[in-house]
Amino acid sequence: MEPRNNTRIAEFLLLGFSEEPELQPLIFELFLSMYLITVFGNLLIILATISDSHLHTPMYFFLSNLSFVDIGFTSTTIPKMLVNIQMQNRAITYAGCITQMYFFILFVELDNFLLTVMAYDRFVAICHPLQYTVIMSPWLCVLLVMVSWILSTLHSLLHSLLVLRLSFCAHVELPHFFCEINEVIHLACSDTFLNDVAIYVAAVLLAVGPLSGIFYSYSKIVSSICAISSAQGKYKAFSTCASHLSVVSLFYGTSLAVYLGSDVIQNLHSTATASVMYTVVTPMLNPFIYSLRNKDIKRALRRLLGREPIKGSIALLLKNCPCYQDSKDQRQKC
Rank of each mutant, 00 (worst) to 15 (best):
F103R: 00
T38C: 13
Y102A: 13
N65S: 10
L30T: 10
G72H: 01
I71L: 04
E22S: 07
E11W: 00
T77F: 01
E109K: 12
I135W: 00
T116W: 14
G96S: 10
Y120D: 08
M34G: 08
Q24E: 03
I45R: 11
S18G: 00
P25F: 00
V124P: 00
D111E: 14
I27R: 08
G16W: 09
T7A: 06
F73M: 14
Y120H: 13
Q100D: 02
L30D: 04
L30Y: 12
L44N: 11
G16F: 10
L66C: 06
M59I: 11
L110F: 04
I105T: 12
D52F: 10
S33L: 13
V83I: 15
L66P: 09
Q131I: 06
S67I: 04
V117P: 01
A10V: 05
P79N: 00
L15Q: 05
D121Q: 15
T74G: 09
M87W: 02
E29H: 07
M81G: 07
D52Q: 11
D70F: 04
E29I: 08
L47D: 09
F31E: 07
H56I: 05
M59N: 07
I85Y: 15
F17K: 00
T99N: 13
L63N: 09
M59C: 06
D70V: 00
N84I: 03
V39Y: 05
V124I: 15
L66M: 14
I37H: 07
F40Q: 03
T133C: 09
H128S: 10
L114S: 09
Y102H: 15
F73K: 04
L44V: 11
G41Y: 07
P25S: 02
A10H: 06
T7M: 05
L82D: 05
L26T: 02
L43E: 08
M118F: 12
D70Y: 06
T74A: 08
T93R: 01
L36T: 06
L15H: 02
V117K: 06
Q86C: 03
N89G: 10
L23A: 06
G41T: 06
T38N: 15
L36M: 10
A48E: 10
I71Q: 12
L15Y: 00
T93A: 05
M101G: 00
S51R: 12
Q88W: 08
S53V: 15
L13T: 12
G41R: 06
T133S: 14
F62K: 02
Q100V: 01
T76F: 01
I9F: 02
Y94F: 11
C127A: 06
H128A: 09
F113L: 04
S75T: 01
T74E: 05
T116L: 12
I27F: 10
R90W: 15
E109W: 01
V69A: 08
T38F: 12
I135Q: 09
A125S: 15
A119H: 11
R122D: 09
I126C: 04
I9T: 11
K80V: 02
